[in-house]
Design a protein around this nucleic acid. Structure first.
Lengths: 243, 243
DNA sequence: CCCCTGTGCGTACAGTGTTCGCATCGAAGG
DNA sequence: CCTTCGATGCGAACACTGTACGCACAGGGG
C-alpha cells in the first residue's frame, strides 16, 4: 500500500495514510508463499517481480530487501515445496511399499506445482536448501536400511525415473491447462490428428494410443503408467539386494 | 547487412550497397542452425532474437519472416537436434545392446545440447516434428521386435529414466560450465562445503560423495552411474518379456 | 532530542519478444 | 523494355522484464 495515494495530488501530512497495520508487512516467508501461489495458479512465465509485489500490496523493488534476486526466490520456492514430499521413516520391513510411497509423494508434489521440474532442470538439485537436504537424508536412511550396498546409486536410479516421468507429465498437464479444457476434452480433440500423424508410422500406429472407444479416465491411465515403470525399476533393484 | 550504411548520413543511390550476395541469404534452416550454435555455445538464456539476427547479419525482426515466434524456433531446434539420436534398426537379437545404444545416444545428445531437456520440460514431447516422430517410430519398432507385449509402457519406463538422468546431468554440467572451471576443479572446490553441509545428516554423510583421495574422473563416474541405472531398468523389463 | 538502521518505493536503465508499415528486391507479364 | 507484384528485410515503437540507485520515512537507543 503506497504511502501517498494517487488521488491526492498534493502530498501532505494530513493526506498521508495513518498506518499500514492491515498486513503483516513484507517478509521473506510471505513473499515465498505468495510466489508459490502465483506459480501454481498462473504458471511460471506469469510470475514477475512487479505482479508479485502488487499482490502483496507492495512495490516491485521492495521485494529486493528480502530476496537477493529472482533466481534466489525460485530456489526458496523449490525448497519450500520440497517440504511437502513425504518419505516414510526407515525401518519398515516392506521397503518396496516405503519407496513407492516416497516416489508417489514426489510425483504428486511435482504435479501440484508443475513449475517444480522446470526449476530443477535449470538449477540442478545439488547444493539445495534444508528441506531438500532432509528429503535426501531420509531417502538415504530408507535405502540403507533396506540393505542396499550402494544406496546412492539405487536412489539415483529410482528418482531419475521419477523425475523423468514427472517432468513429462507436468509438461503435459501444463499444456492441457493452457487449453482451458479438461484433460479428457483435450485428449478427445487431439486424438484424430494424433492418429492421422502416426498413420505413416507402422509401429507407432500399432503401439500408439488406444483406439478403443471406451475412453478411460486419462488421469488413471497416467497413474497406471507411472506405477508400471516404478515396478520395473523396483524389480531391477530387488535383484541387487544381497542374500 | 543493412542496406544503407550508418557512415553515410545522406542516403543516395550511389552510397547504397550494391548487392548482398555475401551470405546465402536468410532461410529457416540457416536460422535454426545458427540458433542451435548459439544455444550450445552460450546457453539458453543468452539466446535473443536480436543477437541471433546480428549473428546472421540481419535485423532482429527479419527473422519473423521465416519463423512465427521464438517458441516455434525452439521447437524447430529441438526437432533438428532429435535427428542426432541414433536408434539401431529392429531385428538385432540382442535387444539389450540395442536399447543401451539408443539410450546412450539420447544421453550424449542431451549433454551435447544442455538446453534440450529444458525445452522438453516446457513443451512436453507430444505432437513434435518429423525427426522426433521417426525417433519414436524406431523405438517402437525396436521394442516390438524385442517381444514386449506393451511396447509403449516399456519405452516410457526406459526413457523416463533416461530423460530424468540426462536432465539432472545437463543441469549439473551447465552449472559447471558457468563456473568457468573444469568439472574436476569444480568438484574439488565444492567438496569441503558439501561435506560440511552433509555432516549434520548421518546417512547422507555415510552414503555421500567418496572421501577417498583418489579423485576419479568425474565424467567416468557419471557414465557409470548412468549405466548402472540403465541396467536396473533393463533387468526389470527383462522380467516382463514373455517365455 | 538526535541519529542510525531497516524498510518501502519512484525512477531509471538496459534489455526482451513482437507488431506495423515502409523500402526494396527479383521475377513475371504485357 | 517497362510495369506490376509478391516476397523479403528492417527501423521504430510498444509493452514488458529484472534490477540498481537514492531518497523518504519509521521506530528505537544513546
Amino acid at each position: 500500500m503506497s504511502r501517498a495515494k494517487d488521488k491526492n495530488p498534493i502530498p501532505s501530512v494530513w493526506t498521508r495514510e495513518q498506518r499500514r497495520t492491515d498486513q503483516p508487512a513484507l517478509s521473506r516467508d510471505a513473499i515465498v508463499r505468495e510466489a508459490i501461489a502465483m506459480l501454481d495458479a498462473e504458471g511460471i512465465e506469469a510470475l514477475s517481480m512487479r505482479k508479485l509485489g502488487a499482490r502483496l500490496n507492495a512495490g516491485a523493488t521492495s521485494l529486493y530487501r528480502h530476496v537477493a534476486t529472482k533466481d534466489e526466490l525460485m530456489e526458496l520456492a523449490v525448497d519450500e515445496v520440497a517440504a511437502e514430499i513425504h518419505v516414510p521413516p526407515a525401518g519398515d520391513p516392506d521397503w518396496r511399499a516405503a519407496v513407492t510411497e516416497a516416489a508417489g509423494s514426489f510425483r504428486t508434489t511435482a504435479l501440484r506445482h508443475p513449475w517444480l521440474t522446470l526449476v530443477l532442470g535449470q538449477a540442478g538439485l545439488a547444493y539445495l536448501g534444508p528441506n531438500y537436504m532432509s528429503f535426501s537424508e531420509r531417502l538415504a536412511a530408507l535405502f540403507t536400511a533396506a540393505g542396499f550396498p550402494e544406496p546412492s546409486r539405487a536412489i539415483d536410479a529410482v528418482f531419475s525415473y521419477v523425475i523423468g516421468m514427472s517432468t513429462t507429465e507436468a509438461a503435459w498437464l501444463t499444456t492441457v491447462a493452457r487449453s482451458g479444457e479438461t484433460e479428457a476434452e483435450f485428449v478427445a480433440r487431439l486424438l484424430p490428428t494424433a492418429q492421422q500423424v502416426s498413420a505413416g508410422y507402422d509401429h507407432l500406429a500399432a503401439a500408439g494410443p488406444e483406439t478403443s472407444a471406451e475412453a478411460t479416465d486419462p488421469a488413471k491411465l497416467r497413474d497406471d503408467k507411472f506405477a508400471y515403470g516404478l515396478e520395473v525399476v523396483l524389480d531391477g533393484l530387488a535383484l541387487r539386494l544381497p542374500k
